[in-house]
Every structure is written in structure tokens, then in C-alpha cells.
């Protein structure tokens, strides 16, 4: 699959979309970032993070530090869940 290139997501773009479209738009942008960190678990981690509020997800897309912290949290929850 060719990696898709998306323009940065803005709050106004999100506001114009339906709720399920909003999560999809965020997911399409989050996934490649998470995939770069954890290739094997990127799908699961992205799915977990999409349960977070959109406003916070937008901040994470713009802040690698915030994203990394949430990815780490998600990993720990995932490992506990699978244990």
C-alpha cells in the first residue's frame, strides 16, 4: 500500500466532518507516527488512542512528546490487558 500524504489536520477541518469521519481523519494521521515507533502494534495503539477526545488528539498530532507519552501509556495498558 502506498503511504498516503495528508495535509495537517485543523480544528475547523474536523468540525466540518461527522464524528466517525473525525476519528478516521485523526487515525489516518496518527497511524504513520505510531507505526514509526511500534510497527507491530501500531494498529492496536492507534485504536486505543482514538478513544481519547479529539481535542487532545489534535494536540498530540502537533506534539511528539505528548504523543510519545500517550503511546507509552497505551503500551503499558495493552501489556496488562494481554497478560
Amino acid at each position: 500500500r502506498e503511504p498516503a500524504v495528508y495535509e495537517p489536520l485543523s480544528a475547523s477541518m474536523l468540525a466540518a466532518a461527522l464524528p466517525h469521519e473525525q476519528k478516521q481523519m485523526i487515525g489516518e494521521r496518527l497511524y504513520p507516527l505510531i507505526s514509526a515507533l511500534h510497527t507491530q502494534l501500531a494498529g492496536k495503539i492507534t485504536g486505543m488512542l482514538l478513544e481519547i477526545d479529539n481535542s487532545e488528539l489534535l494536540l498530540m498530532l502537533e506534539s511528539p512528546e505528548s504523543l510519545n507519552a500517550k503511546v507509552q501509556e497505551a503500551l503499558e495498558v495493552l501489556q496488562e490487558h494481554q497478560a
Binding site: 500500500r1 503511504p3 498516503a4 464524528p19 466517525h20 476519528k23 478516521q24 487515525g27 489516518e28 496518527l30 497511524y31 504513520p32 494498529g43 492496536k44 492507534t46 485504536g47 486505543m48 482514538l50 478513544e51 495493552l78 490487558h81 494481554q82
Partner: peptide
């Protein structure tokens, strides 16, 4: 376990299954 249904996995270009719960 081997059959873990949570979390719903996201795959690029595929509608996210977790959307059902929103």
C-alpha cells in the same frame, strides 16, 4: 490470551471498528 478483541485495531484506509461505540 490469544483471542484479544480489545482494542479495535486501526488500519489506514479501513474504517475504524471502534467507531461503532461512539
Amino acid at each position: 490470551g490469544s483471542s484479544v478483541s480489545w482494542p479495535p485495531e486501526f488500519h489506514p484506509g479501513v474504517p475504524w471498528k471502534g467507531l461503532q461505540n461512539i
